[in-house]
Design a binder for these strands. Sequence first.
DNA 1: AGCACGCCGACT
DNA 2: GTCGGCGTGCTC
Length: 670
Amino acid sequence: MTTGAATGWATPAPARRGTTARVVLDSPLPQLDHLFDYRIPDGLAAEAIPGVRVTVPLRSAGRVARGYIVETVDASDGFDGELSPLDSVVSAVPVLTPEVWALARKAADRAAGGAGDILRLAIPPRQVRVEKVWQRAQEESPAVSSPPDAPEIDGYGSALADLLAGHQRIALDVIPQVVQLESGTWVGRWAVTIAQAAARTVAAGETAILVVPDYRDSDQLFAALSEYLPPDRITRVDASQPNADRYRAFLDCLTDIPRVILGNRSAVYAPAKSLGLLTIFDDGDPLYSEPLAPYVHARDAALIRQQQSGAALVLAGHTRSADAQRLVDIGWLDAIGPERAKAPRVVITAKADHEDAVAVTARIPSMAWRLAKEAIASGPVLVQVARPGYAPVVACGTCASAARCRTCAGPLRIASAGAAPSCTLCGAIAAGWVCPTCEGTKLRLVTRGTGRTAEELGRAFPGVPVLISDGERQVTAVEGKPALVIATRGAEPVAAGGYAAVLLLDAGRMLAAEHLRIGEDCLRWWSNAAALARPGAPVVLTGVTGDLARALATWTQPAFAHAELLDRRALRFPPAVRAASVSGDAAAVAEALAEVRDLPGASILGPTPADDGVRAILRLDYGQAGEAARLLRGAVVRNATKRRKAPQGKAGYRPPPTLKVRFDDPEILS
DNA sequence: AGCACGCCGACT
DNA sequence: GTCGGCGTGCTC
């Protein structure tokens, strides 16, 4: 049997191996979320080391659960029954490192959730063949590239490099530009800045974890990293990878070789030997909000990991999230920007005059129109719209009431040019639609998606190619030639040389969405698009004035975030306070809330009826949130252990909903 | 979850 | 008397 110590990838064997293994189970059940002690049988003594996957008996023979050895000890403390023996060691690779275990435990505790749920994000499913090949390769001690040179970080003098070398925590304002790499690829300047910082970390013999919202950002950053680092120093850990690739990348992260680990939100949990830098790009992006229990936001996980590891932390973006701003305001993060300010040229137009404009230009104010016409001769023009599709919302052409589906009353849309209207929810075709209010038969397009916008603009600019980039058909890069690029917010391609003009066409409509975070989101969408313009090119904001327009025009996003945070403080909304939703059976919710209602500064909204039970919102000062999470977790465990099945004979009985606690629930702000 | 243990109604 | 119903609680 090979042991890890011989091949360099295992945790060093302790001087004296314990006789007892403390095991975390791979289970979502709250009542099993603690360590279980097992006797290590003689036959497994060599393999049963911390971090390995094991199977263990649970309650009765024949029933086995999967888990990981967290530590080995000599005597079990706190449990004085007879220990069962470990069932088996699944694999010799110690996949759960002590650092990741500490992170998972703390992140779960902070969110009133289970560590096992975090581990499922942190450790990909095992792929036996991949693991065998990888183990063999490790035993042959593969050649490692020599450490790279440390590049300068352009645009920040020595300030940023000094802060990183001192492992500081930073809110970084990136430079809103596109640049061409030596490979010829054009990327956002942010990617180069982060790549340079990461390369310096690797040159110093440490590992950097770089987290980005999605694969488009990942591709840009990967291209930039490749300018500074050899391929064996860059490991991509995307959840969209095939399982085999994902597991291979994960295993590579376990080695001692300092590297850059690049990936989406779950990359914050990647194992890393001597972590020196952790960056999150555009931390306001909702993709960082984990949709799986216990719903830990990648930013929060990063903050915990920074504290535990002492690595440098960078929250970078064209905008500052209110959450990052709070950390700046309390002195937890140092705010740093470029040496020389480089703001895009933002042109604000008054509200579009819909009354006397011709149909084709209805959404486009004359100034925007003129600037686009001028610009298109010299290069691509980006048109940002709110929605994909053709006509996502339609209404009666006569009385203007919203058009609804006859079957399910869902809203109707027109999916493509010339298509019959269909239901957004059930998909039913609404041929021969008649307005139930006024009996009109004509439909009016209330909103125009990418498709309809492309059609309209294509007609207005004959001979100019029109490209569409939205959620379904994503274009990642366009050439520097005249073209109209119609994109939904967040799906804008990078243009070679930058866009000759950027039209933020549906700004007013985007801002009208009912969401307390909408101002922050809009500024982020617009700023990210503006950063794709070439120097001096006009960025036209239509239909929006006021603080938000001023923040974009003067490129003072941190000031906007600060003002936003003051508003939230006055209202006691996140992130000025921490909030959690508590939902489930009315009695269970009441019992859970009774535990926390007397904590200093706690306040409760509700409970209000919610699907199959009730839901309440709990607001807490940050200092009390940890204690609240502990108390609520206790309530969840008690609820889980006493929940019972239907009494026999009662047909149609539904068991009461389980008690759920969700900290930092994004729906609280909607 | 899944399984054993335990305390009240119909049975040989 | 005891067989077995399912409500209750635990899992190292």
